[in-house]
């Protein structure tokens, strides 16, 4: 009994109008709009590829790309901009600064209003596919913990797919993350990554 199936844009999900995220209703029928895995029982469609849609509470990593009068604009590597209101910032920010922040809300224009922002100093950032972020973090953070333990690096994964790393063996961590991304849908990945990290525990 497999209630989960892979669907593509245009596939009929329900012949009644049902409100499902990433679906549209036309002529009282419900259709998928993305390549995704669809749980018929729970009526839930999870995209398999692509974009990040900001949701309240998401922790993101972004790069300040414009200083405005009362705010900073943040590049989130997404179709949406982030905005940090200056008065909520402890340290002054500059163009190019990397920040970690939380999405407070998404305004009408699609801009993510960011709070609890914190500047990240030094380190390295890489860009992962947002759809692979859950796998990079793992169930109850297992994969992420394994990555930091195995490389002794501080790793922060933004829901938007930007990952910041510092200290330890960042090169190895990069390699491991790229591999998780490539092999995200294969079983036994946690064990393979564990093996990969254990052989190279140098700092």
């Amino acid at each position: 009994m497999n209630m989960i199936k892979i669907v593509v844009p245009g596939d009929l999900l329900d012949d009644k109008p049902v409100h499902i995220e990433h679906a549209i209703i036309e002529n009282d029928k419900t259709y998928a709009t993305v390549l995704g895995s669809y749980d018929e029982e729970k009526k839930r469609l999870v995209p398999l590829e692509g974009l990040w849609y900001p949701v309240q509470g998401d922790i993101i990593i972004g790069i300040v790309d414009e200083e405005k009068l009362n705010s900073y604009s943040v590049n989130l590597n997404a179709p949406y901009k982030g905005i940090i209101v200056s008065k909520f910032v402890e340290t002054q920010l500059q163009n190019g600064d990397v920040v970690e922040a939380t999405v407070k809300e998404v305004d009408k224009t699609g801009t993510a209003v960011l709070v609890r922002s914190r500047k990240l100093f030094g380190g390295k950032i890489i860009k992962a596919k947002p759809s692979k972020v859950p796998r990079i973090i793992g169930k109850q953070d297992t994969m992420l913990r394994q990555l930091s333990d195995g490389t002794k690096a501080t790793i922060k994964v933004g829901r938007n797919g930007i990952i910041w790393m510092k200290g330890g063996d960042v090169a190895l961590a990069t390699e491991a993350i790229l591999r998780i991304q490539e092999e995200a849908h294969t079983p036994g990945l946690t064990d393979r990554i564990k093996e990969m990290l254990s052989g190279n525990n140098k700092v």
Partner: peptide, 11 residues
Amino acid sequence: LATSGIPMRDV
């Protein structure tokens, strides 16, 4: 387009 995750009415 579908592999990019961009939402579409159809393929």
